[in-house]
């Protein structure tokens, strides 16, 4: 455990922190607690309002350092936050996007359009690293699929079983990480530039705690209050859900289509089975038992 801490501390010193994506089941790093997500399971769909709130958290908090490499237009597409096209156009216009070269051969800035990518906070990775203590904050568009953790045997088998399946390791990890900042336990030294996080492997993370209660104002309901609490817990969940959508924008379409495909194949295989049985009846049926067992009679 100590070597693991020292290892991460050393990694921080040479600026390679957070290079390791898969959260190892490192000793002393608890697995993120499992959350309930609307997009989990066979019939999962995203909660539009949650995605919209998650985008707001990204925009007001994460965007200062983290790139989100998706085009504005996707915020309006089906299966996503489904902002209106007018909202997305207005949103894009608030950003300055570099374009060019113009007729004079110069690059220029213009207001963003829906087809533009959300501009990165830093012009390149080196600038991002220089501004953040030597380690560039990772882009977030696929982070929900680029992070995970191992639950070990026998869970890796249980996690694939229909209706028991568990594939939301990424969002659970993001939620856990954002709520996992706490005081280091006695005797644990956090190296300079690091921060203690319960769920980060090795516990020393370069990113300071980004969220605090009440930091992001959520849209008000008819009663003049936000329908969900404005807490770190809620922000983390909304953001994790939003990042799951950016990582997997076709998730709803995929699950819907998958259900139909499997029903179709089930019906088809049922029919095929009876065709096969009928065909084989012409020669007295077939034996499915391993040979060497008692020979079967021609049962058809």
């Amino acid at each position: 455990m100590n070597t693991r801490h020292a290892l991460l501390a050393a990694a921080l010193a040479v600026g390679t922190l957070a290079g390791a994506a898969t959260v190892q089941a490192a000793e002393g790093t608890p697995n993120p607690p499992r959350q309930s997500w609307t997009f989990a399971g066979v019939f999962g769909t995203f909660d539009r309002a949650q995605l919209q709130r998650g985008f707001k958290v990204y925009r007001e908090v994460c965007q200062a350092c983290h790139q989100l490499k998706i085009p504005f237009r996707t915020l309006a597409q089906n299966g996503g936050p489904q902002f209106s096209v007018a909202q997305v156009t207005a949103l894009a216009a608030e950003y300055k996007v570099q374009d060019g070269p113009n007729d004079a051969g110069e690059m220029f800035e213009r207001p963003g359009r829906p087809a533009d990518f959300i501009p990165p906070p830093f012009p390149n990775e080196n600038a991002a690293a220089a501004a953040n203590g030597g380690k560039a904050p990772p882009p977030l568009q696929v982070i929900a699929k680029a992070r995970g953790f191992e639950r070990g045997f026998p869970w890796f088998i249980v996690d694939v079983i229909p209706f028991l399946q568990y594939q939301e390791h990424g969002p659970d990890y993001i939620h856990a990480l954002l709520t996992g900042y706490e005081e280091p336990p006695a005797g644990f030294t956090v190296p300079p530039g690091g921060h203690y996080n319960k769920y980060f492997p090795g516990h020393v993370i370069a990113m300071p705690n980004p969220l605090s209660d009440g930091q992001v104002e959520y849209p008000k309901g008819p009663d003049g209050r936000s329908p969900v609490p404005e807490t770190v817990e809620q922000y983390s969940k909304d953001l994790a859900a939003f990042l799951m959508w950016t990582a997997e924008p076709a998730l709803e379409q995929r699950k819907r289509m998958g259900f139909m495909v499997i029903i179709f194949l089930a019906v088809f295989s049922y029919l095929m089975y009876y065709v096969k049985k009928k065909v084989w009846a012409q020669v007295g049926g077939e034996a499915e038992g391993a040979p060497g067992t008692a020979p079967l009679g021609p049962t058809g």
Partner: peptide, 12 residues
């Protein structure tokens, strides 16, 4: 290899 790591504090 990771620097300052391992039993000899060289690399691991």
């Amino acid at each position: 290899p990771l620097g300052n790591e391992g039993p000899f504090h060289g690399w691991f």
